[in-house]
């Protein structure tokens, strides 16, 4: 089901050239990256679908609701996390989130309880009674996510949600956002310039360029990079690494985690993945995943902006796909 449907949307500010020109697109369930260079019209698009700029031409529907006629209902069912630093003056985290919940129509007591829940959920449980002005940049990002979640929206607009976070915080928030989509059925539209982050979490991407839609693409449809595999495994790795080197299988990247190691390796495309299995068996390494690596989102994005969209990405398929969760081997 399309959660956002836009048909022929054009929006101009005064006599300036239109910020959006005849945009037609559909955004489907799951996590969608909204990508485009500065000035592409991402902000204007978000404002139009949130009902904040109703004077546009064309049609826009969000969650099946008309963006002009049902603005209030849309905003009740949608959460927005802005990119810029935003907080309420002279108030604590709990009061600010409670107040914003009240603005969504929640009764005081419900909003207060809910504010506690979402602040705990995003990792601000120990800072709920601190003035928001005292929050660090990372804490403010979490606060902004909490205020977007307070009314339990079906659809979340996240604008650069990982900005200002340290690597650990980024990883935590990425997992949290992915869980919101996977386990709690939230649809997420993620506007970002940091493409690797989008690639980690998104099911599909929608690209805007100079006010025009360049299409919506599923990440699963990205062309595989010949001979490049992502592998995850348990067991001793030094011998395995040496064996890979001996067979001229290059380890391009390594990433360790609680559940074992994960590497990106490259080998002769004509050999396929068979040597990896063989060497793993010989060295007692239990493989959990061997998966061809697709070209990076950055490659695809640059190609789209350059005017050469990938051929395999014409339309968005209806079936849901979860991008690499580490559970598929």
């Amino acid at each position: 089901m399309a959660i956002v449907e836009i048909r022929g949307l054009t929006k101009a500010y005064g006599r300036r050239p239109p910020a959006l020109r005849d945009v037609t697109l559909e955004i489907h369930e799951g996590v969608t990256g909204l990508l485009g260079p500065n000035g592409a019209g991402k902000s204007t698009l978000i404002q139009c679908v949130l009902g904040l700029l109703p004077d546009f031409q064309g049609d826009a529907k969000v969650l099946g609701l008309d963006a002009r006629r049902d603005r209030r209902e849309i905003r009740r069912r949608v959460g927005f996390m802005p990119e810029f630093d935003a907080y309420l003056p002279e108030t604590t985290g709990i009061k600010a989130v409670r107040f914003l919940g009240q603005l969504t129509g929640m009764p005081y007591n419900h909003a207060l309880r809910r504010a506690h829940e979402v602040l705990f959920h995003v990792g601000l449980g120990e800072a709920v009674y601190r003035d928001v002005r005292e929050y660090s940049t990372g804490m403010r990002q979490r606060f902004k996510l909490a205020q977007a979640l307070v009314h339990d929206p079906e659809l979340l607009f996240l604008d650069e949600p990982l900005a200002g976070l340290d690597p650990k915080g980024r990883e935590e928030l990425l997992k949290l956002i992915r869980r919101l989509a996977d386990r709690h059925g939230k649809h997420i539209i993620w506007s970002s310039h940091i493409l690797p982050e989008v690639q980690k979490v998104a099911d599909s991407i929608t690209v805007l360029k100079e006010g025009r839609s360049e299409g919506t693409y599923r990440l699963e449809e990205f062309a595989p990079r010949d001979g490049v595999y992502s592998i995850a495994f348990d067991g001793e790795s030094p011998d395995f690494r040496a064996a890979l080197d001996a067979q001229d299988i290059r380890v391009l990247a390594t990433d360790g985690g609680e559940s074992g190691d994960a590497w990106t390796v490259a080998l002769d495309p004509e050999l396929g993945s068979a040597p990896i299995f063989q060497l793993a068996g010989e060295h007692g390494v239990r493989l959990r995943r061997v998966k061809p690596v697709s070209e990076s989102l950055e490659d695809v994005f640059m190609r789209i902006l350059g005017g050469h969209a990938p051929s395999a990405q014409s339309a968005v398929s209806e079936e849901s796909h979860h991008f690499e969760t580490g559970e598929d081997a």
Binding site: L103, P107, H110, A111, H184
Partner: peptide, 24 residues
């Protein structure tokens, strides 16, 4: 600082609170 120290729970309350004018 642990994230999702408590799991996410859907909101099951009402949206019949007082007017936003009074809240502001």
């Amino acid at each position: 600082m642990a994230v999702y120290a408590r799991g996410y729970r859907p909101y099951e309350g009402s949206f019949g609170g007082r007017s936003p004018v009074m809240a502001i």
